[in-house]
């Protein structure tokens, strides 16, 4: 689905934001992109969206080399990528329904298709009753659900999420992760840049770690911190507990208390 071939990108007068990245992400994978600020996560996502082009190397998305994409084909690339951001980026003067419908309107979908799909996706994200609200009337978690609905309403192949839980409290974050997981189960590839240790450690999905533009780790069922073995990686929380936590998190209702307890035990960062 996504392939990076020795991709380098640097901005003027600075050390490379990405240096020689090669990796492949399969269809339907759920990938965490971790690393400190300035490690190149955002550049990685910007390159995928073709908001920037690589200096060297090639990026393939759904079989197309997007570095060689002509200008007028960029929109069709972006229709296959749904984007979610830390700051939601909703339009403040439109209702929830209008915000989601906007994404279909501006790519010229017919009216009946729009109302159909918007209704469905709002049910999916659990906002079926709140279509007429304005963004400022919603909580942060609900706003992010609207943003996810907007990203997913056109059924993209890939969802790119740049710290989608960065502005949310842990319980709300869990709800968002449940939603992203549900979307992932429909076969949609999810690439999520994050700093949230708890989420990465609980979900146990593929982790790609960047450090100063270098790919330093690519681990299936990985955790946030670099780890040689399970014990150190989860910082004292047994793997069984983590797995149990994951199950509960994906299955049961979010429980703030449990997450807080886990964090406390870890000596929360």
């Amino acid at each position: 689905m996504i392939r990076f071939d020795n991709v380098t990108k640097s901005y003027k007068g600075q050390p490379p934001a990405l240096g020689g990245i090669s990796l492949e992400i399969q269809k339907g994978e759920f990938v965490f992109l971790v690393g400190s600020s300035g490690s190149g996560k955002t550049t990685f996502l910007r390159l995928l969206l073709r908001e920037a082009v690589p200096d060297t190397g090639a990026i393939w998305v759904a079989g197309r080399n997007i570095g060689e994409l002509s200008h007028w084909r960029v929109p069709s690339l972006r229709r296959n990528l749904g984007c979610v951001f830390q700051d939601f980026r909703l339009l403040p003067n439109k209702t929830v329904t209008e915000n989601v419908a906007f994404a279909l309107e501006v790519i010229g979908r017919p009216r009946n298709v729009i109302s159909n799909q918007v209704g469905q996706v709002l049910e999916l994200v659990g906002l079926g009753q709140k279509g007429d609200r304005m963004p400022h009337e919603l909580s942060g978690g609900e706003q992010q659900r609207v943003a996810i609905a907007r990203a997913f309403v056109n059924r993209p192949l890939v969802i790119l999420a740049d710290e989608p839980t960065g502005n949310l409290d842990p319980a709300t974050s869990q709800g968002i992760m449940k939603l992203l997981d549900r979307i992932n189960r429909t076969g949609t590839t999810v690439v999520m840049a994050t700093h949230d240790v708890g989420i990465v450690d609980t979900m146990r999905r593929r982790v790609i770690e960047l450090d100063r533009g270098r790919l330093v780790r690519d681990q299936a069922r990985g955790v946030y911190g670099a780890a040689e073995d399970m014990t150190t990686s989860t910082r004292g929380v047994p793997a069984v507990a983590v797995a149990a936590g994951l199950d509960r998190m994906l299955g049961a209702e979010p429980t703030t208390g449990r997450v807080a307890a886990v964090r406390a035990r870890r000596g929360q960062r």
Binding site: H71, W72, P92, F102, V106, N154
Partner: peptide
Amino acid sequence: RREVGVMKLVGATNWFI
């Protein structure tokens, strides 16, 4: 600019914008 940003992200064509 917000609308334009969203339009670009969801793949509206240049002429549409």
